[in-house]
Simulated scan of single mutants.
Amino acid sequence: MNKLFFSILLSAMLFGCGGGGGGANVNEGDNVLSQKKPQPYKLDSTEIASSITNITYKLDIYVPVEYQAGGAPLPVIYASDGQWRSNSYKGILESSGVSAVLVAIHEGPKSRRNIDYLTPGVYDYYEFLTQELIPFVESEYSVLPTNRTLVGHSYGGAMSFYSMLIADPNRSYFDNFVSADPSVADTETLLKLEEERFHLSKKMNSRMILTGAMKGGNGPDVEMAYAYMQNRKYEGLNITLIKQDVTHDHSADQTFKDALPLLFP
């Protein structure tokens, strides 16, 4: 299906899409962090060598300063592009008052994200996340295996979206997917992955927060992808679209800020 046909099809869907089936369509600013007490976080820097991708990834792992090993388990957030987003995400998390473990994954060698976050490399990257990174983190930190979130922006946002689609329907590693102004203009890839997933199972017990930057960003493509997913009517899929009055580059931090009160009310 070419992009022109996809655009015509999904433009029609947008007019008929009422945001049902567990989804919502909200504007930026509708979701404001509740007035929780800010709390400081501390950094643990380490790295992990993947035998799947053959890449060594630097990790910035942030935990609340009051976190105690072996204490009450916390939700865990895995965020791509740690080389750019690590510090700002940490600051947003501190201001939010949310208690969670943040694992910011650097891309590895420069431009490795162009391989890991897109097809076909995303298949190996997803296996690295689920078979190597998650076991490593959960062996070192007290986190909730039932409350894992995967966050990405741009190519990383596409990676988060794709990861939801290529996940085994019978083995869900991530409960929440946050896709910030994802690069989903390659509609043939998105439709191929979704079609394969749809034929495997029409159940998708996942929460997705999808944002589109409307100031020259990927907003129109994101709106169409949202409409397409909504009209598939997956059982158990809760998808929220947030249209943001920001540029593509500013969407990453804005999305993280918007997502926290939705994921951790």
Rank of each mutant, 00 (worst) to 15 (best):
T119D: 06
Y62L: 01
E66L: 06
V98M: 10
E132W: 05
T53H: 07
V103G: 07
Y62W: 06
I55C: 07
Y78M: 11
Y125C: 04
L43D: 05
G108V: 04
Y89I: 00
G23E: 12
P40V: 00
G16H: 13
M13R: 11
E47P: 07
K3W: 13
D60P: 03
L33M: 05
A12L: 11
D44M: 09
G21H: 06
D124Y: 11
F136R: 10
L93V: 00
P73D: 02
Y41M: 03
Y117P: 12
Q35S: 07
I134E: 03
V32Y: 06
D44T: 05
G20Q: 07
P40Y: 01
F15Q: 05
N54M: 15
K90G: 02
G19C: 05
N87Y: 02
Y126S: 09
Q35C: 02
K42C: 00
T119P: 08
K90E: 06
L9F: 15
A104S: 12
G97Y: 04
Y57Q: 14
S111W: 03
G29W: 04
K58S: 13
L43H: 04
T53G: 04
Y62K: 03
I77C: 11
K37R: 02
G82A: 09
V63P: 04
F15V: 13
E127T: 13
S142L: 00
K42G: 00
I55Y: 09
K3S: 10
S142M: 00
S7K: 15
G71I: 00
V103S: 04
P145T: 01
K3V: 14
V26C: 04
V122T: 15
S50H: 10
G19Q: 08
V122N: 13
P75E: 13
Y41E: 01
V76W: 14
P75S: 10
R85K: 03
G71D: 01
L74K: 05
P75V: 09
I92S: 08
V143F: 12
E66I: 00
E132G: 06
H106S: 08
D116N: 15
I105S: 11
I92V: 12
A100D: 04
V98A: 11
A72M: 13
V32I: 06
L133F: 03
E94S: 08
N114Y: 14
I92K: 03
Y126T: 07
I61Y: 09
D124I: 07
Y78C: 10
I134Q: 04
L74N: 03
F6W: 15
T130L: 02
E127P: 03
S96G: 10
G18I: 09
S86T: 03
F6N: 12
S34E: 11
Y125L: 06
K36G: 08
G21I: 12
L59Y: 08
S7G: 10
K110N: 07
L93C: 02
E107V: 15
